[in-house]
């Protein structure tokens, strides 16, 4: 059986449950008024907007994640073809790549970009 067929089966399985839950559910969507439909905020009505500024650190972590993820994607094919090459040069390439990434990470760590407190 194919991948696509199975993923369609999974899609249908969840969709049936999802739609069924809206049919079966006993209360309607509209009753309850503002109190039920407003955003939850500790029993008070909402103060201000939720589209607010956030800590820059989350953004820094996201950028670091992108760099390291790309590095892993680049290393994976190298790891797979390494046995067939079986040369010393390929280790130098792999290690050089890792060292460059590590130097960049160390710089970011030492200037305190990852300091949360």
């Amino acid at each position: 059986m194919g991948i696509i067929q199975t993923s369609i089966v999974a899609l249908l399985l969840i969709a049936v449950l999802y739609v069924a839950s809206f049919w079966i559910s006993t209360a309607s969507l509209s009753t309850g008024g503002m109190e039920k439909l407003s955003a939850y905020e500790c029993g008070f009505s909402q103060m201000g907007t939720s589209r607010m500024k956030f800590e820059i650190l989350f953004y820094v972590v996201g950028i670091l994640y992108l760099i390291f993820d790309l590095e892993i994607i680049f290393l994976t094919p190298l790891a797979v073809i390494m046995p067939s090459f079986d040369s010393f040069l390929i280790f130098l390439i792999v290690n050089l790549f890792i060292v460059i990434i590590t130097i960049g990470f160390l710089y970011e760590y030492l200037i305190g970009a990852l300091d949360l407190t």
Binding site: S25, L29, G32, K36, L37
Partner: peptide, 13 residues
């Protein structure tokens, strides 16, 4: 039980 419950759609979402 969770299938039988009501789904709430918040106003500003």
């Amino acid at each position: 039980k969770l299938i039988l419950k009501e789904s709430v759609l918040p106003l500003e979402s």
